[in-house]
């Protein structure tokens, strides 16, 4: 464990807690893309298949349970909670996320470190995570404005993977033959995808005005 990875995990934890608290307290999911939340639930489900077979540490297992529990709770809230589901904007949240799942699965069948069931799904979860934010960013472009909590959620989500990149650099220089191109490239792509959002988020924060995304 190093400071970059710990910061990344805490930032990631903060992002899901911000979203869960928002939905739980104000009983609204306005501006939140259910598609992105469903993609994240799939990411965690396919990433953490080893949760019951490979015990790494209490921290590792605890965090996996938190990420699985929070992502599935958010999906449940947005689909089934009688009050929250009313604020879900399904007419605007129309990104066909199956167009992301199938290519990521095919790519994971081709590009992986070893062709086993768990390794392919683990690789799939990396590719899917890299693009999972797309429905949310498309929804924001459509609805134009963004409330603070959703903005913070996306910012934290982008920041966590940026911290992980520093973690990978650190581990590359401190651990012999720690080389993993697949997560590195997927993680870099993912962070770049947040790039323009960060740009507008930073400028809105600097000018202390409401975050407006260009049409």
């Amino acid at each position: 464990m190093n400071i970059f990875r710990f910061a990344g995990d805490m930032t990631h934890l903060a992002s899901v807690l911000v979203l869960l608290l928002k939905i739980h307290t104000i009983k609204s999911c306005a501006g939140v893309s259910l598609k992105t939340q469903e993609l994240y639930a799939i990411v965690f489900a396919t990433r953490y298949l080893d949760i019951f077979t490979d015990f790494i540490s209490l921290y590792n297992t605890f965090m996996k349970l938190v990420f699985l529990g929070s992502s599935f709770s958010i999906v449940w809230y947005m689909r089934s909670h009688k009050i929250v589901r009313r604020s879900y904007d399904k007419d605007q949240d129309t990104f066909r996320h199956y167009f992301l799942i199938v290519p990521c699965l095919l790519l994971a069948m081709i590009i992986n470190e070893k062709f086993t069931f768990r390794e392919v799904l683990w690789t799939f979860s990396l590719f899917l995570e890299a693009v999972a934010i797309l429905p949310q960013l498309v929804l924001l472009q459509r609805t134009r404005n963004i409330d603070n909590l959703t903005g913070q959620y996306i910012f934290l989500l982008g920041a966590y993977r940026a911290f992980y990149i520093f973690n990978w650099i650190y581990r590359y220089f401190t651990e012999p033959h720690y080389v993993h191109w697949i997560p590195w490239i997927a993680g870099l792509l993912q962070t770049l995808l947040y790039g323009d959002f960060f740009y507008y988020y930073f400028h809105s924060w600097k000018n202390n005005k409401k975050l407006q995304l260009p049409a």
Binding site: R5, D9, H12, R47, D50, D54, I56, S57, N60, M63, K64, F67, E113, K114, W122, Y164, N167, R171, E175, H177, Y178, H180, P183
Partner: peptide
């Protein structure tokens, strides 16, 4: 072994 080292990450 080599490619398991990253599996300790979330």
């Amino acid at each position: 072994e080599r490619n398991e080292s990253i599996k300790d990450e979330l």
